[in-house]
Simulated assay, not measured.
Amino acid sequence: MNTSPRPPTPINSPSYPTEFQQVILKKSQNFVGRIFVFTAIFNFIQRCDRGYFTIIGAPGSGKSAILAKYVTENPQVLYYNAQLPGKNRAEEFITSISTQIETENFTSLHSLLQQVSDKLEPQQKFIIAIDALDAVNHTDQTKGSNLFYLPRYLPRGVYFLLTRRPYLRKQSGLLIETPFQILDLAAYPQENHEDIQSYIRQYVNSDEELTAQLTAKSENNFMYTSAYFDCAQYKKLSDHLSQILPAISKEVDRLTPDLEAYYQQHFHKMIPPNSPSQEREFKSSVLNVLVQFSSVVSAESIASTIDADEYDVEEVLENWREFLTLQEIDGEIHYSLYHSSFQDFLSKQVNFA
Score class of each variant (00 low, 15 high):
M270N: 02
A216T: 14
H266N: 08
S238H: 13
I271A: 09
L214P: 02
D258E: 10
L214N: 01
H240L: 02
P273W: 02
Y263H: 06
S277L: 15
T211A: 12
A261L: 07
T211Q: 00
F267Y: 15
M223L: 12
H240T: 11
K217G: 03
L245S: 09
D258I: 03
E279F: 13
S277F: 07
N220Q: 12
Y224W: 10
P272E: 06
E208R: 02
D253K: 06
Q233N: 00
D207V: 03
S277Y: 11
L241V: 13
D239Y: 12
H240R: 08
T215Q: 11
M223Y: 06
Q265V: 14
S218Q: 05
K269Y: 13
E279W: 12
Q265I: 08
E208C: 00
H268Q: 14
S218G: 09
P276H: 09
E251D: 13
K235H: 10
Q233R: 09
Q213E: 14
L210N: 05
M223C: 01
L245R: 14
D207T: 03
L259D: 05
Y262L: 07
T215G: 02
L214A: 07
A227Q: 08
V252K: 00
D239N: 15
S242A: 15
P276C: 13
R280E: 09
E208T: 13
P257M: 02
E251Y: 07
S206M: 14
E251N: 07
M270D: 06
Y262S: 01
Q243M: 13
I244D: 05
S275H: 04
A232R: 11
S238V: 13
I271D: 06
P257F: 02
T225P: 03
S238I: 06
L237W: 10
L241P: 02
N220W: 01
